[in-house]
Design a protein around this nucleic acid. Structure first.
Lengths: 336, 336
DNA sequence: TGCCCAAACCGAAACGTTTCAAATATAACC
DNA sequence: GGTTATATTTGAAACGTTTCGGTTTGGGCA
């Protein structure tokens, strides 16, 4: 049987409440009692029963994260790095992390409801926001603490961290234009995803600002996986009037696009320029290495986690809305 | 305030215990009462307080998984796919998943102790087992339910799923030999990792069985990331007597190795053959596509999760030890 | 009418904490 | 020695369930 406060109380000959107070370092317990209690607790291998603590304290010291998984072969290095950041930061603050997986869709809010109403967690992390995001609407209406990675178009004020996709895409498209490219294709992502919208807007804006014609047929849609990047780039490159550069909405699709180009005997960075967005570790070690926009993924994980914990604790946030500027990392794939 | 059993009891004019029994579908509650209670509960938006349930029931309906993270830029597509499998299977069974991150090392058992002694979870998942694995020793000694992905050299009997690394590596090395390769290099992984040991043993065994000399200097050590795969392959390929084929212990290192070869102007699959192990989605879409050994990662996630839940429920396992046979996927990188 | 039985329901204890008002011990002062 | 103030300690309630022994209700039967 596990050792409880009662057992310790018996062992030291004090009451349960004194033992509890001693372990929680309350003021009104004498120093020697505290030391005695703590020593005995350690010796007996005491570990508080967290279910009881949670029931009494009315908080769980647990954060929730529902991963949007697309299909069974969900394999995105972006998320594992984010998870590392979130996991480490929450552990540092003594919070547990409850992870759940759910495909985006109509019954998604059920997973959120379960977390919120069952009081499983004190706050939630929301990632990959959508323009009209039901999850955010739900949480905001409930007044439940949450922090998002990404913005939305809805009229809710909530704390978030986001990267500036518009100016990020500006940087890389301008880079391509400066290298002399005129026919630049874009592998877009589902437009309900907020970051996809921003990145596409960045692409359009930069083309326009440079007075370049925008051939809509050069904008093709992918789903963020290498697979569709591969397909999309294949279609683009098989056209008689093929583009000289392809900017992908994320690194994974860019890597797929590179493979498609290479299968066609094209030398990436020479015959065709290809760029990504995110700077996942793979980008650095592909061949040729991928020109992309760097985001501090691990640090973002820690940031949103830290912000959420501050919210839960009722502390004020120094910055409620953080917009990070991605930095351009020029590597060989753009021929720069 | 959240609605409790008491509120429902008041609303339907019955006692708390009757309401509880009704919601748990006990025998001695009349059908009409059950229906009434359930309807009212739904209408009032009742959600059980899980902290109270856990305290009373003495179980958490939660599984724990401590991810071994190596450094902040932890980014392994293998794990995100495993997570998808584990997450989906546990959700299907009504279990929560508590994820924690911890670098492998001496204070790792503290994370396990926290989960176990704090009664945070009913069972644990252990992945990436080591030959002398303190985590497994700890859990086995505590008699705490757990299922491992991977075996160990210790003398404990515990349920596990593993892939047969020896015969997997046999397949791919034999494949290379059949293609005429004689000087085959191997990018190994830290030998304390069980799967690394098996895969290396598979390499050695196949070379020996084919009567090929084993040049120990052709076995170099990596840490499973593309980065070290890249480095290791670089060293190998810069030797005057460079190998004609490189087998990597995992896909990520193989991808790094491919980049190293390509940087040196070598055509992978022609000038040098390169193979991996795991068949992560990236393997299919690299250029050239990577010859590797397929493992059903998602399914493995579901399997270990399902086994763990059975253990917790006290059900017997149809198979306590599962050894999966990886299948060879020949693609272009081996020139096959 | 009286008795028995099953079905349906209920009260109270228990799970292991935390918290707060109240009680006790200790010290300080006149 | 009595009074007051302060430092410790304590008992009991509370958190929201589940569970179990016990009570009520009403019907069937002699």
């Amino acid at each position: 049987m596990a050792v409880t406060l009662k057992d310790i109380a018996q062992a030291v000959g004090k009451s349960v409440s004194t033992v509890s107070s001693a372990l929680n370092d309350y003021e009104d317990v004498s120093q020697e009692t505290k030391e005695l209690v703590r020593r005995v607790a350690r010796e007996m291998g005491y570990m508080p029963n967290i279910a009881a603590q949670r029931l009494r304290r009315k908080r769980t010291d647990t954060l929730g994260w529902i991963l949007p998984t697309f299909g069974p072969r969900f394999s995105d290095p972006f998320f594992s790095e984010l998870l590392a950041g979130i996991g480490n930061e929450s552990a540092l603050n003594g919070f547990d992390l409850l992870v759940s997986t759910h495909a985006p869709g109509p019954d998604e809010d059920e997973a959120y409801r379960r977390m919120v109403s069952g009081r499983r967690v004190d706050g939630l992390l929301v990632v990959r926001t959508r323009s009209n995001d039901l999850r955010i609407a739900f949480l905001a209406e409930q007044g439940f603490p949450f922090v998002a990675f990404g913005r939305t178009q809805q009229d809710f004020d909530f704390p978030y961290v986001d990267e500036d996709g518009v100016s990020g895409m500006n940087l890389v498209i301008q880079h391509l234009i400066d290298l002399g490219h005129r026919r630049i294709a874009f592998i877009a992502a589902p437009p309900d995803l907020m970051f996809a919208t921003y990145r596409l807007a960045g692409f359009r804006g930069t083309m326009e600002r440079n007075g370049l014609p925008l051939d809509e047929s050069l904008i093709v849609l992918g789903d963020l996986t290498q697979h569709t990047g591969h397909q999309a780039a294949g279609e683009l490159l098989d056209r008689p009037d093929r583009p000289t550069a392809i900017a992908a909405c994320n690194d994974l699709m860019a890597l797929g696009a590179m493979a498609a180009a290479q299968e066609r005997g094209l030398i990436v960075g020479q015959d065709v320029a290809i760029t990504g967005f995110d700077d996942i570790p793979l980008a650095q070690h592909s061949h040729p290495a991928l020109t992309t926009l760097h985001q501090p993924i691990y640090r973002i994980g820690r940031m949103i986690c830290d912000m959420l914990i501050k919210c839960i604790r009722g502390e004020s946030l120094p910055e409620r809305h953080v917009l990070l500027q991605p930095s351009l990392v020029v590597r060989r794939s753009s021929g720069g």
